[in-house]
Nucleic acid binder design. Structure first.
Lengths: 312, 312
DNA sequence: CTCACCTGTGCGGAATACTCACGCATCTTG
DNA sequence: CAAGATGCGTGAGTATTCCGCACAGGTGAG
């Protein structure tokens, strides 16, 4: 990794030059001559193999690459200055960055996030939503919540909620299809897939003692999308218990076989860097989420939502 | 800013030393002697005024400050390497980072985010949720959505949706309070406040031709929290049209004076760095959000939600 | 047309960073 | 239990890097 890094001192000259749009002005600021800056820029360009500035007479302007790199360098240097400052002052950074996947953020986390903020007003809470695998070396996240099997490279995790899946659809659609009271009836309905999760449909039908029908019907990239599709009445989705709870409580979705829940090994995990189990930020999130899960279980049980017993 | 930066070359030595937990091993990796590394670390520590390692005999370990700084440095260097690499390859970064405030993310954005992802599968879409004022110099966001008055330092913006406010509460609460059919009745109900927005209640009562009652009732830090409180039946909230639309459509909230909407000057803006109006990422987000807003207006109008005409 | 202004670069010197060598304090091993 | 191995700190000397200086080149302004 380190050999791919540009010469770091040249970045200061580059940043100042870009900001002032002038090597001469940058040189003044850095208390060196313009010649020194000129060489630094050149060294950086040589390393990258790309021209960062277009040299016009008496002025310079960014190339496209230069502008892009400048934005990145500016941000990184200012973050570094902030980190250095916080170390100098020995005050633990007041930022608390939580990372989450898209479906979970949409259906569960964001409606509850304000309570995390209210509980720890001294933390400047950030939420980073992405489906990229969590990597604490490159992410600024302090703690993550991920749907998975509990194994995360270079990280520890603990299970927050387990999950089950079971067919759901909109009340309208059920009525239109005549009740959908047997697995056979469901097999002949339009089945909504979540991409990469088709095996779950197969396993669910297997549990019901029948082969899965050939795949047809729409496929969506996210669990939250297939749920939205089911709400719109596009067919029957294999609803993930945690994600559909609110929509079922609100009557937008109904469970077709509340008792036929398929356990899946994946669940929702709290993930954090190795050895950070008792880090204050991790503890803060864990304490909060324990309370949220407790409340959520009540909602789920009162609402009679599928999979309630599968939630820890 | 630049004078607050630590000597940048020392960061490489620090990173390698921290990673290998040894100056000698780090020195090998950097093709220098251990003495050189030792001096670099010392220079960095002198600059920060903090010991980064505890020197035990025959081994070193991080101090608390060292560990915190190491995490930051590791992340920043690896991001820098990634940026440098992407410049070398001249491939525009495939990341699309959207920033949003908490209430808007919770009530509007995240349920729709998966469609942005589906629409641009080549972009690795990230969402950064925070209530900190947007600053593109320090944030990695490409584009932001903020509730505000359209003025954002060092950035351009365009209005996405306007907003109105009007009293809302849960159907239960309305019934319990005997209908709440007059402004006077509302004045004697429990009023839920959003912190920093009390003036809106005053203005709303002013519009109804009566003075606002003395502030009592709970206050919450976020619009989404006061909405949740109203849903729980804690009282009457001044519902922001964009945020309450879904909850009204679902019947969790009712508007008490659908026709008495107070226009507020703030609204939802799409914010991006100066001159990025036609940047591909900005265009992608704008195109997507235009479609979403169009659909949302239909939902709002069909549902008869307050403030529908206030949405552009 | 001439001046003013900004960047590029060769050369010599100054500042920086490195190597080497040794000291020190354990930990290891036979 | 003693001797060797291990890893870090540091003083002195040296190597290398980086910078200042001066000048060249190019061009927009007046």
């Amino acid at each position: 990794m380190t050999d791919r890094l540009p010469p770091l001192q040249t970045l200061r000259a580059f940043e100042a030059t870009g900001r002032r749009s002038s090597m001469t002005l940058a040189a003044e600021e850095l208390h060196v001559t313009h010649g020194a800056v000129s060489r630094q820029i050149k060294a950086l360009e040589d390393h990258l193999g790309v021209r960062l500035f277009r040299r016009m007479t008496r002025r310079i302007e960014f190339t496209a690459e230069g502008a892009a790199f400048f934005a990145a360098v500016t941000r990184l240097l200012s973050e570094l200055a902030r980190e250095a400052e916080s170390i100098r002052r020995r005050n633990e950074t007041a930022r608390l960055v939580v990372s989450s996947g898209v479906s979970f953020a949409s259906k569960w986390l964001t409606p509850r996030l304000h309570r995390l903020m209210a509980r720890y007003p001294d933390y400047d809470v950030h939420l980073e939503v992405t489906d990229v695998e969590i990597d604490f070396a490159t992410s600024q996240a302090d703690v993550a919540m991920r749907y998975g099997d509990g194994r995360y490279p270079h990280a520890e995790s603990e299970r927050i909620m387990n999950e089950t899946v079971s067919p759901v659809c909109s009340p309208d659609y059920r009525e239109r299809m005549g009740g959908l009271r047997t697995a056979g009836a469901i097999a002949s309905a339009r089945l909504i897939h979540e991409n990469g999760m088709k095996a779950d449909w197969t396993r669910w039908f297997g549990m019901m003692g029948m082969p899965a029908p050939a795949a047809r019907g729409p496929g969506y990239s996210h669990g939250s999308m297939s749920i939205e599709a089911a709400i719109r009445g596009e067919g029957v989705a294999l609803g993930r218990s945690v994600l559909v709870a609110e929509d079922m409580a609100a009557g937008r979705l109904v469970a077709l076989f509340p008792e036929a829940r398929l356990d899946v090994e994946s669940g929702y995990d709290l993930v954090y860097p190795m050895g950070h189990r008792d880090h204050p930020k991790v503890r803060a999130v864990r304490d909060w989420i324990d309370d949220e899960v407790r409340q959520f279980k009540v909602v789920v049980e009162v609402g009679g939502v599928i999979g309630s017993s599968g939630i820890i």
